[in-house]
C-alpha cells in the first residue's frame, strides 16, 4: 500500500477515535451525575429560598433535560473554550484545572521516572541472574508493593521519613518554575524536595509490578532464537544485552506504561494527593465526586481523556520507533 495513504488513514482513524472517546467519557460522567442524587442548587445556595433557587436552576441550565445540558457543555467548549464554572464557588473550571494539572502531572511523571529507574535495572539483573540475591529481594519488594495500598504506604513514609526523621516535607507543593511575590516556595529544587515522598509512594506501588514484568520480558527475549544467533556470532554479554535484548524486551513495557500512567496513575493520585496535601486533579476529583460538583468532575474527565489520547499517541510513536514491523505495516 502507498505509504502516504496509509499514514493519512492512520491519522484519520486516530482522530475519529479521539473524538469518540471524548464524547463517551464526558457523556457517561454527565449521566452518572444524574443517576446519583445530588442537589447543586443547595450546594450553592445553602437551604435558600425558592425564588433564588429557581433563578439558579435557570442560570445553571438545570431546568432543561440532561441531553440538552450536555449539548450546552459541548457547545461552551467549542464556542468559548470554557469548561464551565464550579458549583461550589463559581470559579472557572479551566483555570482551576490549569493550576492543578501540573501538580498531578509532576506527581505521576516524576513517580514514573523513579519507578522505571528502579524497575529497569532490577528487572534486568534478576532476569540475567534468576534465583540470585537481587532476584529474591526483588520478589519480596514486589509482594510488598503489590499488597500495599497507596494511603497506607504514603502515611508510613510520611511518618517515618518526614515526621520521625525529618528528612523531607510531609505535605504541600512548590511550583517548578520560580515565581516571585507572595508564593512561599518555588523553583526546581524545592519542587523536587517536596515531591520526594509522593514520588516514592508512587514508585514503590508500581516499581514492583514493573520489575516483575521487565524480568519476564527480558527472560523471554533471552531465549529467543535471534539471541542464540547473536551468541553464535560471538557477541559478548554486554553487546547481547544492549543490542539484541533490551529493545525487544521494552515493547510490552511501553504498552503497559501508556495504560498505567493515566488509568492507575489518576486512581492512585486520588489517595497520594490526599495524604500529602497536594491540591491536584486527584484530590479535586475525589472532592468533586463527593459533593456533586459536576462541572469540576466533567472538567477533570476532559483533562484525563486528553491525557489518554496524547499518551496513546506517544506510545504509538514509540512503538513504531522500537519495532520496524509496526512502522512498515500500518
Amino acid at each position: 500500500m502507498d505509504e502516504g495513504f496509509a499514514l493519512t488513514r492512520f491519522v484519520l482513524r486516530r482522530t475519529f477515535w479521539a473524538f469518540f472517546l471524548f464524547i463517551v467519557a464526558t457523556f457517561v460522567t454527565y449521566v452518572i451525575f444524574y443517576v446519583v442524587p445530588a442537589n447543586p442548587v443547595s450546594l450553592i445556595n445553602g437551604a435558600g429560598g425558592t425564588t433564588a433557587g429557581q433563578h439558579l436552576r435557570t442560570t445553571l441550565h438545570l431546568d432543561v433535560p440532561v441531553f440538552q445540558q450536555y449539548w450546552i457543555f459541548v457547545w461552551n467548549i467549542v464556542r468559548h473554550g470554557s469548561l464551565g464554572y464550579s458549583f461550589l464557588d463559581g470559579s472557572s473550571v479551566r483555570s482551576v484545572l490549569g493550576r492543578e494539572a501540573p501538580i498531578t502531572g509532576s506527581l505521576i511523571l516524576g513517580g514514573a521516572v523513579l519507578w522505571l529507574l528502579l524497575a529497569i535495572p532490577i528487572g534486568i539483573i534478576s532476569a540475567i541472574r534468576p534465583r540470585s540475591l537481587v532476584d529474591r529481594f526483588g520478589m519480596i519488594f514486589v509482594l510488598i508493593g503489590v499488597s500495599a495500598p497507596a494511603v497506607w504506604l504514603g502515611l508510613i513514609l510520611a511518618y517515618s521519613f518526614g515526621f520521625k526523621l525529618g528528612w523531607t516535607p510531609i505535605a504541600d507543593y512548590c511550583n517548578f518554575f520560580p515565581t516571585h511575590g507572595l508564593t512561599l516556595c518555588s523553583g526546581p529544587a524545592r519542587w523536587a524536595y517536596h515531591l520526594v515522598l509522593p514520588w516514592t509512594t508512587f514508585a514503590l506501588l508500581f516499581a514492583a509490578i514493573y520489575t516483575r514484568m521487565i524480568r519476564a520480558s527480558v527472560m523471554e527475549t533471552l531465549s529467543e532464537d535471534y539471541v542464540r544467533t547473536a551468541k553464535a556470532k560471538g557477541a559478548g554479554s554486554m553487546r547481547l544485552l544492549v543490542h539484541h535484548v533490551l529493545r525487544n524486551s521494552m515493547l510490552p513495557v511501553v504498552t503497559l506504561l501508556g495504560l498505567d500512567l493515566v488509568a492507575l496513575g489518576i486512581t492512585n493520585a486520588v489517595w497520594t494527593e490526599t495524604v500529602f496535601n497536594l491540591h491536584g486533579l486527584g484530590s479535586e476529583i475525589g472532592y468533586a465526586a463527593r459533593v456533586g460538583n459536576l462541572p469540576m468532575a466533567v472538567g477533570i474527565v476532559v483533562v484525563v481523556t486528553i491525557a489518554v489520547i496524547v499518551l496513546n499517541f506517544i506510545v504509538d510513536v514509540l512503538y513504531a520507533f522500537l519495532d520496524p514491523r509496526i512502522r512498515l505495516s500500518t
Binding site: Y226, R247, N248
Partner: peptide, 24 residues
C-alpha cells in the same frame, strides 16, 4: 567468543525467528 562466528559459523532451523526483528 573468538571462535564463534569467526572460525565456526552456525545456522539454525528457523530463519523466521533467527534474525533480530528490530535490526536491519
Amino acid at each position: 567468543r573468538k571462535i564463534r562466528g569467526q572460525r565456526i559459523g552456525m545456522i539454525f532451523q528457523d530463519p523466521m525467528t533467527s534474525l533480530n526483528p528490530v535490526k536491519r
